[in-house]
Amino acid sequence: MIRLRIVCFLPTISFIINLNTVSCNLLSCFDFMIGKKLSTTPIKILSDIGLETCLNQCVDHTYCLSVNYNRHEFICQLINRKKNNNETLLDDWDYIHKELPDIGHQSEKMCGAIACNNYSTCLHTSTGRYVCIATVNGEWGPWENWSSCSKSCAGGQTSRKRECNSPYPMYGGALCIGSETETASCNTNPCSGGGFFGFGK
């Protein structure tokens, strides 16, 4: 029997894997499914965060009941359900799957003594209070000015950018939809003196 010891990038968690057996040095880590993921469409994807933050995001999100966490790319997938008895988790060693314990349905998720509505996220304040904060979806700000054309003739490119900051997405809100950059053709007139053959700028 092969016994592997894998130390994750997360400084507080160490996994010892013996086939499908997992033991951790954190009490909350007992039901982590390493090398497994639930095949479903996530309700939200978060990038560049750690596993602990991923789980906290799931706890705070009104609909989240489990997560798929890509431990190599640090991508967190929030999922609005748990595995049912008629399906199995997929094998994928890039992932860790974790279900929220003791919660079977979204209606059971409490923020202190109350349940947040579908448009709110639960926040734990520094004073020990739990507060439902309304979700803020991101919206695009205005476009910046077009950049200078890349060529003076024979067809160049110009571009402009915008930011998802009007407002920024907050408290679990959705990111802006669409591209942050836009390109267009410019100075399409022919170059004089053989510009099409490389003499034009």
Rank of each mutant, 00 (worst) to 15 (best):
E144I: 05
G128W: 13
A134S: 11
C132R: 12
R129Q: 15
C132H: 15
S126V: 14
W140S: 02
W146P: 03
A154I: 03
R129T: 14
G128D: 14
N145M: 09
W140A: 01
T135E: 14
S126Y: 09
G138R: 10
R129G: 03
Y130S: 15
R129K: 15
E139L: 07
P142M: 01
A154G: 01
I133C: 06
N145F: 04
T135D: 04
G141M: 02
Q157H: 02
V131T: 14
V131M: 09
Q157E: 05
C153N: 06
N137A: 11
C153Q: 07
N145C: 05
Q157C: 00
Q157M: 01
Q157K: 07
V131A: 00
K151S: 12
G141F: 01
V136H: 11
N145T: 10
G138T: 10
S150Y: 00
S148A: 10
A134F: 01
G138C: 10
I133G: 05
I133A: 14
N137L: 03
P142E: 09
A154T: 03
R129H: 14
C153P: 02
S126C: 08
W143N: 03
W146D: 07
T127G: 12
S147L: 08
P142K: 03
T135Y: 00
V131G: 00
S150R: 05
R129S: 15
E144R: 10
S150E: 04
R129V: 09
S148H: 07
C153M: 07
Q157L: 12
K151Y: 06
P142V: 04
G128I: 11
W140P: 00
V136C: 12
S152A: 08
Q157D: 02
S150D: 02
V136I: 15
S126E: 14
C153W: 05
T127Y: 10
G156H: 04
Q157W: 02
T127R: 14
T135H: 06
G155R: 05
